[in-house]
């Protein structure tokens, strides 16, 4: 009995020795939460590691979950005791809300050959619109329709400038029912022909560095849209015609 017990202890001790001889990357954190400012173009996460084992670790691959994220290692090989980091850069683009991107790291560590690093970014845009499209059926009464714009409260936006790409629509901006809210009232001149306009919306704020937003206004073709009808829709994006500015809030 005692001999068996001693053998068992011996096996455990041997296993512990083997364990201590392995390479091991210890990560400071495998998940990073970021809150980029509304003007930030990128969110960067640093995943720090240390080789706490006593043999080198090699990175075999570092792969981001989407094309919008790039990941870089400082070294291909991490010597025992060496520290380093993997930098994940997430290009925000036009994304909003909670974005979760992952970076999969493959190493030659037999115990943990793959690890998933997670970057979570909460993106609050400068402005949010609803809806981004207003449209009228052909022949519908040309009453104004409302686009609600909600501004980021930290941006201190006092005014919005809205311009239509064609003179077929007019746009007027008023203060909304809540603070930091605007009502963009869009109206077609007539609804007897199919027309389309891009509404370019520029917030007037010291914090805003040339951000522009888009919405669209349309009068639909009279019959179900065919390819030829769609191609006849006037689509002049180059000449802003109708411009409106909001009162200060």
């Amino acid at each position: 009995m005692n001999t068996n017990f001693s053998r068992l202890i011996g096996v455990f001790a041997l296993a512990a020795l083997v364990q201590s001889a392995r390479a091991e990357l210890k990560w400071e954190q495998t998940s990073v939460d970021l809150r980029p400012a509304f003007n930030d173009k990128q969110a960067v996460a640093h995943f720090k590691y240390e080789n706490v084992g006593n043999t080198p670790v090699h990175f075999k691959s570092v792969h981001a979950s989407c094309g919008c994220t790039t990941a870089q290692t400082q070294n291909e090989q991490v010597a025992p005791g060496q520290k380093g980091e993997i930098t994940a850069t997430f290009n925000i683009g036009g994304r909003t809300g909670t974005q979760v991107k992952t970076v999969t790291v493959q190493t030659d560590d037999p115990e943990r050959s793959s690890i998933v690093l997670t970057l979570k970014a909460v993106i609050t845009p400068l402005l949010e619109f609803q809806p981004t499209l207003v449209y009228w059926q052909n022949g519908e009464e040309p009453k104004p329709k409302i686009i609600t714009a909600k501004a980021n409260k930290d941006a201190a936006i006092k005014k919005l400038d809205v311009s239509s790409s064609t003179p077929d629509f007019t746009a007027k901006v008023d203060a909304g029912s809540a603070p930091n809210e605007f009502r963009i009232s869009v109206q077609p001149r007539d609804t007897t022909k199919a027309v389309y306009a891009t509404l370019t919306i520029k917030p007037d704020s010291p914090a805003n560095t040339g951000n522009m937003f888009s919405a669209a206004a349309r009068v639909m073709p009279s019959a179900p849209a065919s390819k030829s009808t769609l191609s006849t829709i006037r689509h002049d994006l180059a000449t802003p015609a109708a411009t409106a500015a909001s009162p200060s809030q």
Binding site: G93, G94, Y196, A216, P221, P224
Partner: peptide, 21 residues
């Protein structure tokens, strides 16, 4: 229409959209 260039690409898409499709 991707989120990399959402603001630029959205108007073009909305110009092509029709409720029947």
């Amino acid at each position: 229409l991707n989120e990399d260039r959402w603001n630029e690409l959205l108007p073009h898409f909305l110009g092509q959209w029709s409720p029947e499709r």
